[in-house]
Nucleic acid binder design. Structure first.
Lengths: 125, 125
DNA sequence: CTTAGTGCAAAAGCTTTGCATTTAC
DNA sequence: GTAAATGCAAAGCTTTTGCACTAAG
């Protein structure tokens, strides 16, 4: 456990919700000016491997979140404002069961992200 | 309409299902050895813009498919074998309605892709 | 002829890797 | 003291862009 790693963990933990690697980097530099992006990525991979953080792809970029087994969720990402809302996996339960029963396909629920338009960005009319 | 563009269209049309830009390129080179990847991308963008092809992201890579309004579908991608199955959007209808009603979030149904394990790749036991 | 498309090369953006040096334990 | 982690630099991969040249209509 190095100070750089602790920093990364702190930063991800401090954030409610997901955070991009570049954002982690910027914040980490406040405490460790010479920390490298590669270290950030390596640390995030490590934290993911040991199950401390979760990785989601948002807008073709990796984002990370503190893993919380008691608060699993999916994401709804607005394509206009890039806002992200969380969604209980309960909403996907029935759908997921159908895929399993009818196709024998086991969906990876943790990696389902729904794109679309949030309530604030609905087109007029 | 140039021969390069026709090639790209032919290639996408010949394929049942999606195809990556790099694959289109490889096939296009058989007929036009000097065709450039940039031309492939530009043509695919064009075809997408005019509604002839559809773009989906599979495994962080753009894939393209002949657009078929009468056969809209979503994709299930197996993370083990990379196999892709199509899925009628009917399976998502109820889920989608709930998001709309409860959150005012309008999901982009055309861009929902489900990752997971297909029936052939289920873990033993 | 004049606009649009192509090939080539280079760059952008995100992520990963090699390697020598430094650090943790 | 030894194995692991870091910083730095470079490369990888997909996709995009600039630009002079070519070809289409």
């Amino acid at each position: 456990m190095t100070p750089q790693r602790l920093s990364v963990l702190d930063i991800v933990a401090a954030r409610t919700g997901h955070i991009g690697a570049d954002e982690v980097w910027n914040l980490a530099k406040e405490q460790h000016p010479y920390v490298d992006l590669a270290t950030i990525y390596r640390t995030l991979q490590l934290l993911k491997r040991v199950g401390v953080v979760t990785e989601v792809i948002i807008g073709n970029k990796l984002h990370f979140e503190l893993a919380d087994q008691h608060n699993r969720h999916n994401h709804m990402v607005c394509s206009t404002c890039d806002g992200v809302q969380t969604l209980s996996p309960d909403y996907l339960a029935e759908f997921s069961q159908r895929l399993e029963q009818e196709f024998g396909f086991t969906p990876d629920l943790d990696n389902i992200t729904i794109g679309g338009l949030c309530s604030s960005c609905q087109p007029p009319g």
